[in-house]
Write a protein that binds this DNA or RNA. Sequence first.
DNA 1: AACATAATGTGCATATTTGCACATTATCGG
DNA 2: CCGATAATGTGCAAATATGCACATTATGTT
Lengths: 294, 294
Amino acid sequence: MNWDDLRLFLAVARTGSISGAAKQLGVQHSTISRRMRQFEKNLGTRLIERKSGRYELTPAGENVKEVSDRIEREVLGFDGALAGEDAQLVGPLKVAALNNMASSVFMPMFASFNRKRPQIELHIIVANMDVSLPQREADIAIRLTNSPTESLIGKRIVTVASGIYGSRDYLRLLREKGGRPKWIGVECCGFHVTWTKRTSGSQSHNFYCDDTLLTLSAIREGLGISILPCFMGDTDPLLERYCAPDPAYNLGLWVLLHPDLKRSARVLAFRDHMVQEIKEKKDLFEGLRPQAGH
Amino acid sequence: MNWDDLRLFLAVARTGSISGAAKQLGVQHSTISRRMRQFEKNLGTRLIERKSGRYELTPAGENVKEVSDRIEREVLGFDGALAGEDAQLVGPLKVAALNNMASSVFMPMFASFNRKRPQIELHIIVANMDVSLPQREADIAIRLTNSPTESLIGKRIVTVASGIYGSRDYLRLLREKGGRPKWIGVECCGFHVTWTKRTSGSQSHNFYCDDTLLTLSAIREGLGISILPCFMGDTDPLLERYCAPDPAYNLGLWVLLHPDLKRSARVLAFRDHMVQEIKEKKDLFEGLRPQAGH
DNA sequence: AACATAATGTGCATATTTGCACATTATCGG
DNA sequence: CCGATAATGTGCAAATATGCACATTATGTT
């Protein structure tokens, strides 16, 4: 019996669907479907049954799930202990960061760390939702928040200011013709959604972006204005500030790690590197580098 | 992390070598070697180290072995429970039998079971050493022994008589010329080794066989005489008995299963089938069918 | 009932893993 | 030290697993 099938079954049991498990494990749903069928065939019994639109566990499946839960705890326990004590500056390192930051301001920082420490395999995980450090989905998370999860270790390195940006052409036309600017709708995170709603009033949108990078592109296209972090708005030559940053938009930039990993040499090496690099760009993050011409 | 790597690591930890683990798991040693290296790389730490001709565990490896032991217990626990309650006459069934019996007298019996129950996937495991039923290396074992493992369930179905056989030509020449016969050396099992030594006296051998099928072939070639079970000697037209079976050579033929599986429908179906088939050939096993012409 | 969407299944191409054969290294005995 | 054997490593072909694109089925809404 392949023990790894238990890990896969556990994902199906927890999500209640094949597509949910596929998403959680980062593989194709067809892979999950096939492996589950084969696993059940090997065992000679059904573990899951289709009921009212979701998969429910058979009695046998309940039993196997309990076992799999215990196995996961065992695995997470030693995995955490191993990684936490690892004094080697070698091996994999999973870093979770927001898509907008990872592909822009942070990428040069990742690259310089990679050049300095090529034996450490960097795995950048971009997601606009928090990845779970306790579940070892990542070793380090770089987060924008004013209230980080308390059980994680880390500090607020800089404050990230945000302002309202529009393209230069769009704003020039707006100044010539007057009138109210058009707001781009955002669905990237509750924070941006809330502030966009408050600032734009009851204006309705006909264009929505669920990622800040998309918002940036939409602004460049002249679709309107929107809230952007200054490190993005102030570094794009086609954009300019519609108005100055409002402290109400401020968020903290945190480099967080799980307590289990506080002695892992490569995690600490990466953290220290990022802290230093971020501090060197403190002005940019805090909105003190507006573009010339504003 | 692939949980199945833990199962593989456990085999290496227990056998102290890559080739040992490969043999235990039934895969190529190169597969073990590669997967272990990759597993260690993924973990970022060494689990095994080469010391005086064997692999020993690092401290981290000791920790992971304990976890893997516990996981194995979990897996064997539910696997046993699942299989034991399985009322389906479908799925895999692993049968362990000696090579000489599996390929001769039992094969027609396996075949008839397979024709009767094609939904049951028969896996015949031949080995001249006991495979472990508690470790689920097999579901059923057919064994020749006078003292089966007490914790297993099963009974002695027939007695297997053995006699000393030689080829017809060899024995005819021996009778014409007189003299003492030459004994073929055996290394197949302690039982045969002991009785060969006692019966042949201090005669030394220059030809050894470590499998009864090999012994049969050597006898056919006229290399000498040797002890063979009657079901083998009495069914080969080129062989005849050098002397009658000696009850001292008798062994019991047992069909054994693990207590966990005493309610598994397909295990019981196979057991019942074999018991019936073996009883139908009781005379042959007990040496009551000598060849005509003896 | 019709339609849209989500979830699952299937065929085929691609990627990955494994077996095989040979090479290299390590160990043991003379 | 040398030779034989056992254990491990490597390149390549074969086998297996997975991703992708599409098909089919299931579910929810109008």
